[in-house]
Amino acid sequence: MRITVVTGEPSGRLYAGLVEEALAVAAPDTEIIRLEAAGHHDTVLGFTEGVRSAPRLTRRLSAVGRRIAGLGPDLVLLVGFSNFNLPLGRACRRVGLPVAFLAPPQLWAWGSWRCALLRRAADLVICLFPFEADWLRRRRVRAVFTGNPLVDAVRAGEGRTARSTRKMTLERLGMSQDQRYIAFLPGSRPSELTHHNRLFDTIEIPSYLCLRIAPDSPLAPHRYDLLAHADAAVIVSGTATLEAALLGLPQVVCYHLGGPTRLLARLMVRPRC
């Protein structure tokens, strides 16, 4: 069996990697081909930011669609990155390719009208949360919840962390073992890093080291160890908030948007589950 996996942002790559590891064990004869939907600067969140990146994504959409058609996979697995993967899924299904969508857009938070787009884009939607699958099925989307692969990843990280004490972790990173610290995670998209690094630059907490863990930081490979031993965290809403929760870390969740996007979000976001 040949599966083409399409990702476009860091969280999607994380989930895709976990699925690929599981398939390597459960179905070792499966051939998996990973395609990247976009470059680093195309992974944006926000209305105005999305408009600016649209021409690049449109060109990339055509190229990825042609590549998938040439590969002729038995299944196309789309992971997150809905602005790109929803139209890509429709294009794949039009030429007869079966499509599964892992980590769908959070339509229960805003834009529930996009359920029709999701129905046309995927034969099966694989949700990360049980309530999400129930919500989508009530809106005639074929959706399932089979567990969240991040849970296993964090458990594996906890196993490594259990063998690494706070003292060992801090010494390995050249920090004082008595240092109390709060972890700051500014997100992964370029726009998130820009907005939140500016915000985090203004924060000082007496008696605590504010330890910033960005995706390209030398601290990133030690993220689970650092989160497990932190006193608390300030985290940009996203996959990292779930990771911290699974590790039992007290956290403040934040998200800072640009002015036009913030105004539109206040008008449009209406969580209803």
Rank of each mutant, 00 (worst) to 15 (best):
L78Y: 06
H40R: 14
A38E: 09
A37S: 01
G65D: 13
A54V: 14
I32S: 10
E36Y: 01
V19R: 00
D42S: 04
I33N: 11
G65Q: 15
F81E: 02
G39M: 05
A27P: 09
G80H: 10
G65R: 14
S62E: 13
N83E: 13
D42L: 02
V64H: 09
P28L: 08
L71V: 15
P87V: 01
S62H: 15
G72R: 12
F81G: 01
L18P: 00
G72Y: 04
T30M: 07
A63M: 03
G80F: 03
P28Q: 00
G65Y: 01
G50F: 04
G70E: 07
L71M: 11
L78A: 07
N85W: 04
F84H: 05
A91G: 11
A38W: 04
A69R: 15
T43H: 10
A100T: 00
G46V: 01
G72S: 00
P10W: 02
R52E: 08
L23V: 04
L88C: 04
A38Y: 07
G39S: 11
G89V: 00
G72A: 01
A69L: 05
P98W: 01
P28D: 03
R13Y: 10
F47G: 10
V76S: 10
V79M: 01
A16C: 05
T30D: 12
V95K: 12
H41M: 06
R59A: 05
E49M: 03
T43Q: 09
A63F: 09
L18W: 13
A27Y: 13
L75T: 10
F81I: 04
A69S: 14
R52L: 05
P87Y: 05
G89A: 00
I32W: 09
R66Q: 12
A22R: 09
L45I: 05
T58F: 08
I32Y: 06
